[in-house]
Design a binder for these strands. Sequence first.
DNA 1: AAGACGGGGCT
DNA 2: AGCCCAGTCTT
Length: 274
Amino acid sequence: MKIHDVNQFRKKILEYYRRNKRDFPWRETFEPWHILVSEVMLQQTQVQRVAVKYPEFIKSFFSPGACANAPLSAVLAKWQGLGYNRRAKYLKQTAEILVAAHGGKVPDTLAELVRLPGIGKNTAGAILAFAFNIAVPFIETNIRAVYIHLYFNDNAAVHDRDILEKIAATLDLKNPRVWYWALMDYGVYLKTQHNGLLQQSVHYKKQAVFKGSNRELRGAVIRLLLKEGPVSAAEAAGRLSKPEGLTKKTMDGLVKEKMLEKLYGRYMLREEDI
DNA sequence: AAGACGGGGCT
DNA sequence: AGCCCAGTCTT
């Protein structure tokens, strides 16, 4: 189905939303730091998993100051289960910048937000909409599905730049917060009804296999370091082989990739860093 | 433009 | 065995 009338399109989305709104903890607050935290957590991570971790994380790091002052290991510990651990590092760095350069507050302009580590144009747009009710076009996987289905249904190679044009043309300037919530909820629904919507995007790409990868090993090593403190490669190998069920080939990365050294450096998990 | 970057749930 | 997840950063 193709939609040519903006009002018809808006009505369709908002009507669905009125009846099927999803409730999440981060939709019960407009507090910018809390919104920012939720948006970083939600990058490439299912809402159901974030819904479990978010409240506890917010309790521990209620303000940018609380996050900035905490050791990275503490932030990482609360992050476990969400994946992509560098986001926890970005979040702490962002908190430090907010304290040092923004009076401990989240800025309300796109230009300032995208300068923060781990915050790109899409997350920045989401923060502006959900924290400040400021309307800027941004794209995200569920929104992408909506526009592909309703505006580019017969196009097998849709570019985000063309979707963004439609997003701009249909933007709700009065209440972007509700509009984007509605778009996302409708996108989730559409994806249950139609297969392969996202494959119509030229930006679609398959993920590399996780099992047996360095990513799998890194995740396991981080968990071990957070639990046990600094260890040698030999100790790590001994502790990981059984409980984590890693293959020998995967474990070789500990030595070959100098995995421990890299992770100690990246996440400051040596004795002297803590 | 392509890869790196976690981990879990669902089919 | 794949597919996908409220993406960002680096090369």
